Computed example of a mutant assay.
Amino acid sequence: MPGEDALERARAGDGRAFRELTEPYRREIQMHCYRILGSVQDAEDLLQETLLAAWRGLGGFEGRSSLRSWLYRIATNRCLNALRDGARRSGERPAISPEVSLPEPTRRGDPSWLEPYPDALIEDLPDGSPGPEARYESRESVSLAFLAALQHLPPRQRAVLVLRDVLGFRAAEVAGMLEGSESSVASALYRARATLATRLPAADRDHAPLPDTARERKIVEDFSLAFESGDVDAILALLTDDVWLTMPPLPLEYQGLAATGHFLSTVALREGRRYRLVPTRANGQPAFGAYVLDPGTPIAHAHGLIVLTLSGERICALTRFLDNGLLPRFGLPRALRPLR
């Protein structure tokens, strides 16, 4: 139960007291919205909607649940409403140069509007463990692979799985949040788990090295050197045999060394095209802001974000986000001046 004094002051219209009550939960509620919506911008918008709805409805908060659970209830239903109403920011499909012919992909999926999440926002999450019924560790539940798999679930199943298996809320709590029965929650969770089992990496996949360890730094540095020098063979030597290359929101997916190498040599690194990579982190994973060197000027122009998914000593996925609008969220500029 929140502090009675702060709660009463907030109910009386004290904005500072309301912020005192809700500030500890802002970052985790934003992450919750991101897991359901897959978009950083949408998550920020829905966080603000949640707080506004909580401010207006505080008089109806009777304390039967914790303030945290009440906020999650509001946020979850706001996210589901946004998905149901099609109110999400759909964005535009990134432009591909007309002179570039994309190779035939290994498979074609649905367009994915999943966006990367800056690690700076993850680091700000309050310390705390998920509930005892959670199935996923915090690191796994923010990974791109997990978020991409979630996007294939129907909205209600997505919400149930996040609330139960990521956050560890009890079935009765989730049923109350979604105004349904425990049996309907159990059914939705069963179906969601079955779908995720077909979408997540195999259980025998080698674990990624821990962040900022010597193992991770070595892989990241080797990739950066190979990519900046345009050495496709050196890049392929760092990848697993079954590596996936994807470019959200384009529905084109390339798997394996042959398909990935062909894409790199004919598209990304075609005709001697060169890049500068600026390291950052997204979804708990190594990432780079990519900048294409302009042979006519000393300026390198933004060309999206690359996120690496690691497995053991190798890279098992390359995710290329082509939206340059993402870069400012990572503190990265739209262009780079020449190195001095």
Rank of each mutant, 00 (worst) to 15 (best):
L161I: 14
A10M: 10
I235T: 12
T319I: 04
A192C: 06
L52S: 15
D204Q: 10
P132S: 03
F288Y: 15
R108C: 11
A10P: 04
L264R: 05
I306K: 07
E104F: 07
S90C: 13
T319L: 03
A300H: 06
L196D: 15
V40R: 14
L178N: 01
Q255F: 08
P333D: 00
W113D: 12
G272K: 12
S129Y: 11
L326V: 04
V100L: 13
E44G: 12
M177Q: 03
P98N: 09
P251A: 00
A290C: 14
I219G: 04
L250C: 05
A208C: 06
P126S: 09
T50M: 05
G128L: 05
G256C: 05
E313P: 15
S143H: 10
A268L: 05
E62N: 14
G109F: 03
L47G: 07
T240M: 11
S187V: 09
L80P: 04
A10V: 02
S183E: 13
P201L: 07
P94C: 00
A95L: 14
V40E: 11
R68H: 11
H32D: 00
G304C: 08
L252S: 01
P295Q: 10
E137W: 00
P286I: 04
L102Q: 10
L161G: 00
D294F: 15
A302M: 06
